[in-house]
Computed example of a mutant assay.
Amino acid sequence: MNPLVDQAIEDYGYWALGLFLILLAPEALMPFAGFLAHEGLLSLWWAILAGSLGGTLGSTLIYLLARRVGELRVRTLLRQRGRWLLMGEQDLDRVLTLYARHGAWIVAGGRLVPTLRSLVSIPAGLLPMPLMRFIGLTWLGTLVWNTVLALGGYLLGAQWRLLEPYLGLYGSLAFVLVLAVVGFYLLRRLAERPG
């Protein structure tokens, strides 16, 4: 944790927590917010609400950016530079088809997985998933995860830092899994390229 961020949350409370969670991972802040609630400096439920609003806003900004870029521009990029990106339009079609079928689960569930948390907003914006549906699903997943993290900090009290190694391990495993999937995809694409 960054001492300046900690101090800002202690000094400015819910506003600082919400603003920081637009950009930062909840694993870095919500257990600390739970600890502050344990100490009586914040309300647990208001902290969860503020953190969830910030996280939802951050994801929505990524969604809106993807929506602004649009599928047509992405397809044009893939036609022009797809060979170098090791991705073609058919790959985009697969992702969008998967999203069309399971988008609700991916958006809500993706909030629980570091690395994926931000990435799931991109295909949702390209598809595009309706904005209010996206916000609702993002809010739901973010609220669940922030509640788990804040409750952990609240229940552990002054020992809230005991969560850090487990959250770090969880984040590392999620990152390695995402990296392995991307690596497998890239290797397969390289093997398919004509010599």
Rank of each mutant, 00 (worst) to 15 (best):
R117S: 05
Y99G: 03
W145G: 02
Q159C: 06
G168M: 09
G110M: 00
L167D: 04
A108S: 11
R117W: 09
A124W: 01
R193G: 09
G153E: 05
T115I: 15
Q90Y: 04
R79Y: 06
P128A: 11
G110C: 00
L143C: 06
T138Y: 00
V144C: 07
V182N: 13
W84H: 14
P128R: 08
L112V: 02
I106W: 01
W105N: 10
Y170N: 08
I135S: 02
L169T: 09
V148P: 07
G110V: 00
A158L: 14
L173Y: 01
L112H: 01
L140H: 06
V95E: 12
V95T: 15
P128V: 08
Y170P: 08
L169W: 13
M129G: 00
V178M: 07
L149R: 04
V144P: 01
S121Q: 03
R94L: 09
L86C: 10
L127C: 01
G88V: 03
F134N: 09
R79T: 05
T76R: 13
A124T: 04
L85E: 10
V148E: 08
G183C: 08
I135A: 03
M129C: 02
L163Q: 02
R193H: 13
R193Y: 08
G152T: 12
L169V: 11
W84R: 13
Y99V: 01
L143W: 12
G195N: 14
G157R: 05
G125S: 02
Y185F: 12
G195E: 15
G136W: 01
G183M: 11
Q159E: 12
R79P: 00
F175H: 06
W160C: 03
Q80E: 12
W139Q: 07
P114H: 15
L77E: 02
E89A: 04
R79G: 05
L151M: 13
V120I: 10
L96H: 03
G103K: 02
T142L: 09
P130M: 13
P123M: 07
A150T: 03
Y185A: 09
L151R: 01
L167I: 11
V182G: 11
R188K: 15
G103M: 00
G82C: 09
L167H: 05
Y170V: 08
D91N: 06
E164L: 15
N146S: 10
L186N: 12
T115H: 05
G168A: 14
